Amino acid sequence: MAGQDRRQHIRTAMNAKVKVVHPELGEYLFATRDISDGGVFIVVEEQAFEAAIGDHVTVQVQGLPIPAPVLSMEIVRRTADGYGLQFE
């Protein structure tokens, strides 16, 4: 792999609403930017969400005709506009 790109999985652009529940910070609704076999990127814009790398959260896609599964994820990356979450 060249440069700083350490991706193991191909990203696919995906704009969906997800509910993210952090055990200490509470429940939030975010948009996704992309998804892969390894995880998802959530866009955090103006909301005050100050999670740390290594924190564990649950994530559930919203707006589907039936309730989506609740997935356990770990925060593995933080950028200026959001967080990278890895499936556990």
Rank of each mutant, 00 (worst) to 15 (best):
D81Y: 00
P69W: 08
G82S: 03
I42G: 04
G63A: 10
P67H: 13
R33N: 14
S72K: 11
G84D: 01
A13T: 13
Q60S: 15
F87P: 01
Q4V: 12
L85I: 04
L25D: 03
K19P: 01
A80K: 12
R6N: 14
D81K: 05
E24C: 04
V18R: 04
H22K: 06
V70R: 14
Q62K: 14
P67N: 13
E24M: 06
R78G: 00
R78N: 05
E24W: 04
E27G: 00
M14D: 04
L25A: 10
D5C: 12
G39F: 03
L25F: 03
H9A: 14
A16M: 14
L29S: 12
E74C: 01
G63Q: 10
I10S: 13
F87C: 02
V44E: 07
I75R: 03
I53A: 06
L71R: 12
D37R: 10
Q86N: 00
Q4I: 10
R78I: 08
G39P: 06
T79P: 05
A52P: 07
I42M: 06
V44T: 15
E50Y: 12
M1S: 14
G82E: 00
E50I: 06
G38V: 06
V43K: 13
A31F: 10
D55K: 11
S72H: 12
E27V: 10
I75Y: 02
D34A: 00
M1P: 13
S36T: 01
Q47Y: 07
Q86W: 04
D81F: 00
G39V: 02
A51L: 06
E46I: 09
F49W: 09
K17W: 11
V40Y: 01
V61S: 08
G82H: 05
M1R: 11
Y83C: 03
A2R: 13
I66M: 12
V43S: 04
L71C: 08
R33W: 00
A16F: 07
K19N: 08
Q47H: 11
L25M: 10
L71T: 11
